[in-house]
Design a protein around this nucleic acid. Structure first.
Length: 776
DNA sequence: CAGTGAGCGAGCTTCCGCTTGACTT
């Protein structure tokens, strides 16, 4: 039995450290937290000074039992959990649950997993920092109090199973407020003037230093330029430089993987986890931009080897985030000489490459750029045209990595400019005055929401992805795309002293994978904001974090801190609970012809329109569900009335009614208990009997054509060759197999099918990995 | 899959942060 037991949080980390420490050490992991408050009930005894009821988590019982056994046998137990609030608490929980004594326990910490860092840590043990543990208790219990006192209010006032919390409720608020900014944004248009010039044989364009509000003004300006001569008024060359971005943290990795690879934040974490477990990258949940000296040195070696001395420039970055706890290194390759991962998974390869490039670029020289600004005057009007160009004199880190920008931030590509000097004449080819529209702020993507939350100091690297899942699971937010609308814009052109005008169309407002608030999200948000503004305040977390820090410094007890927070908070909870009215987002749209009130609100089954009053005993009210794309706060009276035109009868077929309506998956015809989707080009309000019959017959025909052939086997399950949405495929025993190119599905033999299935199984296609929420 | 809509009230739901293992579509 080894003399020493060292405990870390992550199993993959344990494996690495065991290699560094040799045979005197056995290294195990706690797999995160081992105790927590119970899921059911508050788990905090408020009257008894907030005494928490910690319990070993059900899925950790085995781990704790094993560690306890090993600890008993060991001479010394080293608690090597992360050096942050949560890590310190885990060490303390381990101390308690494993029945350790101070004599037999040492607490060690390190910020990077390198041999020298681990050895240094072992030489400098310390005690568990109880003040830091107390700060964690304050954090944990405050989150429990907020979450478990607010959520039940929502169940009563709005809908069962809803939730609220310090982090998720602010995330929802951000999305709701952004949506309202967009809805209330007043779009205005203006005219931007661009001149197209040439000098020598280089063409270039330049923007006018003035924009016009109306077409009339723009046109008048162009008219003024008829017959004008253009020449260089001034020319400015400015050297500038660009500096590489810091290596990845969890948040920046999620942002770049979203922009460059279109990954969701969950997908990024999944793929990164796999790379981490393979040993290809360092830990992926980190808020630190720090690199170990070893990493910096080997990055430098790699840069010199690949690009030469000129390109190397080592740097240490500083974190900008005030909430950072920096228990780990930045996310980086473990081995810089590996440009690629040995994994053959496409996404793992791409994410690894991104991490490699970002890290290596962070240790490279600045790019040197020469910016040129040419101002062009004319002899007819006072306004000047300005052309800007950029020449990269030395590419530096740009050789390896260019950071992407969020939508709306990107600038227009700047082209090459001709070599000119003051007073040189330039030829004008034509000048456009293009109508442009002001842009509302853009909706959040998952990744840009993470960026925003991080900026507010809300949430941690381990919770960004789960938080985004939670707000979607609760139905507060949906991630989706929207088709844009056509919009017309005018283009005036001055060419050969004549002005022409054309109208063009563009698509505006199209969205892909953006976060939209739902009606429930808005109603919940408004309710919380009205009653618990303090919790929803963007600075609430920052404020309590300051207090946690004071607790961590030993200058305030966690109980006292909680008491100060809880008293007024709980009073508001009581007051809000006692109030009678429910929150339903009710909005009265008007009256119908018969004088009945028409209103929208959240009903038992979601957002709906109601005509008439439930208190009216002479006539029952009528109800209709809102469509997916409709919202309580924007739907018009007319749109609401339209909802009552369905379901309608399209006619009879085979002596059965054909009922047309719109469901969760779009318009459909219901006939003889079966559903038939309406094709896009058909309108549910007008589709007639003949067309409806055609749609039903179409689907029946497709179903008949679905089966290409069935090959019976015994005792093995039969093989079916079917026509699917993406073409023919083979299926057997609930698995799906692709048919190789060049094979005629109709003529596939049993032997060929068996061979295809065997080949597919042998290819070792990896099953998708994910972490569903565990059941209690 | 696609419906439903009052009020009564059984019993249920819920937080944030640390970590990964086990099952079907």
């Amino acid at each position: 039995m080894a003399k020493n037991l060292l405990i870390v949080e992550s199993p993959a980390k344990a494996k690495t450290i065991e290699k560094y420490l040799g045979k005197d050490f056995i290294v195990k992991s706690s797999i995160g937290h081992i105790v927590d408050l119970p899921e059911k009930g508050l788990g905090v005894d408020i009257k008894n000074d907030f005494k928490p009821d910690y319990q070993v988590s059900t899925d950790k019982k085995k781990v704790v039992a094993e560690l306890k056994k090993l600890a008993k046998a060991a001479e010394m137990v080293w608690l090597a959990t992360d050096e942050d609030r949560e890590g310190e608490a885990i060490a303390w929980h381990l101390f308690n649950e494993l029945g350790l004594t101070e004599k037999k326990t040492k607490r060690v910490v390190y910020h990077e997993i390198t041999k020298s860092a681990i050895e240094a840590a072992i030489k400098n043990p310390r005690d568990i920092n109880k003040d830091l543990v107390d700060a964690q208790q304050a954090r944990r219990i405050l989150d429990r109090l907020v979450g478990y006192e607010l959520s039940p209010i929502l169940w009563r006032k709005i809908k069962p199973s809803l939730s609220a919390g310090r982090v998720q409720s602010v995330a929802v608020r951000l999305i709701v407020e952004r949506e309202r900014e967009i809805t209330s944004f007043g779009v205005t248009s203006f005219f931007k003037v661009v001149g197209y010039f040439a000098a020598g044989n280089i063409s270039f364009k330049a923007d006018l230093d003035k924009k016009f509000d109306t077409e009339k003004e723009a046109s008048a300006f162009l008219a003024k330029l008829k017959g004008a001569d253009f020449s260089v008024k001034s020319l400015e060359k400015k050297p500038s430089k660009r500096t590489p971005s810091a290596p990845f943290t969890t948040s920046t990795l999620q942002q770049e993987a979203s922009r460059k690879l279109s990954f969701s934040v969950l997908q990024t974490m999944r793929v990164a986890q796999t790379l981490y477990e393979r040993g290809d990258i360092t830990y992926m949940r980190t808020d630190s931009v720090n690199l170990s000296q070893l990493a910096i040195d080997s990055a430098k070696d790699e840069v010199i080897k690949l690009y030469g001395d000129k390109y190397a420039q080592t740097r240490q970055y500083k974190t900008k985030s005030s909430s950072a706890q920096e228990a780990h290194e930045a996310i980086r390759p473990t081995n810089f000489s590996a440009r690629e991962t040995t994994s053959d998974d496409y996404n793992e390869k791409r994410l690894y490459e991104l991490i490699w490039k970002r890290t290596v670029a962070s240790q490279m020289a600045d790019a040197e750029i020469e910016k040129t600004v040419i101002t062009i005057k004319n002899n007819k009007a006072d306004n000047n045209f300005v052309a800007t160009g950029e020449v990269i004199k030395f590419d530096g880190f740009l050789k390896v990595y260019i950071e992407s920008e969020d939508e709306g931030e990107e600038e227009e590509k700047e082209g090459l400019l001709p070599a000119l000097k003051t007073d040189d004449k330039v030829n004008m080819s034509h000048i456009d005055a293009v109508q442009r529209y002001t842009q509302p702020p853009s909706r959040y993507t998952e990744a840009s929401l993470v960026k925003k939350l991080e900026g507010l100091g809300i949430g941690r690297p381990s919770t960004y992805a789960p938080t985004i899942s939670t707000v979607q699971k609760r139905g507060y937010v949906v991630k989706e795309g929207r088709e844009g609308n056509e919009r017309k814009y005018a283009v005036l052109t001055l060419k050969d002293d004549a002005i022409t005008s054309v109208t063009k169309t563009e698509i505006t407002g199209a969205e892909k994978s953006k976060l939209f608030p739902t009606d429930i999200g808005m109603v919940v948000n408004d309710f919380l904001l009205a009653n618990f503004a303090e919790i929803l305040d963007y600075n609430f977390t920052a404020h309590v974090e300051e207090e946690f820090d004071i607790v961590a410094d030993g200058k305030l007890t966690w109980q006292k801190m909680l008491k100060q927070f809880y008293k007024p908070f709980h009073a508001t909870v009581e007051k809000t609970s006692a109030a009678k009215e429910r929150a339903s987002g009710e909005r009265i749209l008007g009256k119908d012809a018969a004088g009945k009130t028409i209103m929208v609100r959240i009903g038992r089954y979601g957002p709906m329109v109601q005509i008439g009053d439930t208190a009216d005993e002479t006539a029952k009210p009528r109800f209709a569900k809102l469509r997916a794309e409709q919202r309580l706060d924007t739907i018009t009276l007319e749109e609401a009335m339209d909802l009552f035109r369905l379901p309608r009868k399209a006619g009879l077929y085979e002596d059965k009614d054909m009922d047309v309506s719109i469901g969760r998956f779009g318009p459909y015809i219901r006939h003889d208990g079966k559903f038939y989707s309406l094709p896009k080009e058909d309108d549910p309000y007008t589709v007639n009997e003949a067309r409806s019959i055609e749609i039903i017959e179409d689907k029946r025909k497709k179903e008949r054509e679905k089966v290409i052939q069935i090959i019976k086997r015994d005792p093995e399950p039969e093989i079916q060759v079917l026509n699917g949405r993406y073409g023919p495929y083979i299926t057997s025993d609930k698995e799906i197999y692709k048919i190789p190119k060049g094979k005629e599905p109709k003529e596939l033999t049993l032997e060929e099918c068996v061979a295809i299935i065997a080949a597919d199984k042998a290819s070792g296609k990896k099953k998708r990995k994910f972490f569903p929420k565990k059941k209690a």
